[in-house]
Amino acid sequence: MMVSTTKSKGLPKASGAVKKAVGSYGKDKEALIQVLLDLQAVFGWLPPGVLREVSEQLDVPVVQVYRIASYYKAFSLQPRGRHIIKVCMGTACQVRRSPQLLNTISAVLKMKPCETSTDGRFTLETVNCLGCCAMGPVVAIDDVYHSNPSTADLQKVFESAE
């Protein structure tokens, strides 16, 4: 699967990255979602310039590219941090106190849910189910799952993240 972390340095140019992504599917219009997923993995989000470039290179109207990119939760049209924190708000996690976990994370990082920190390090998101309810309350930091982490555990993980 995709790696959701991207280094701020050395981000590829939009046209080059799009050319590579489009080319790997043989310029097939049907591969629009796959192309966007690949580009999301490269940039961490989908900047407007990238979407316009995709529209041009795939010969798909920009309207349609935006419709797809804004429909799926997997895509972000807003800049995201280098590290994505997903706190599960599913029913099982909810009853096992995931709201408190979210509050703790919010307090430790001094940011609200759905926000990206000003230094571009973290984005704090809530999701509806991560599919591992037995581990609840669960938080996924860069796709590594942590079951009911203590504040100290969280601090350690956040400190090690650049």
Binding site: P61, V62, V63, Q64, Y66, R67, S70, Y71
Partner: peptide, 19 residues
């Protein structure tokens, strides 16, 4: 292709593309 849908569910909107 100057107007299109964005978003999903209750956030779905028809929007213009000025360019």
């Amino acid at each position: 292709h100057a107007i299109g849908f964005m978003g999903r569910g209750v956030d779905r909107r028809a929007v213009f593309f000025p360019e």
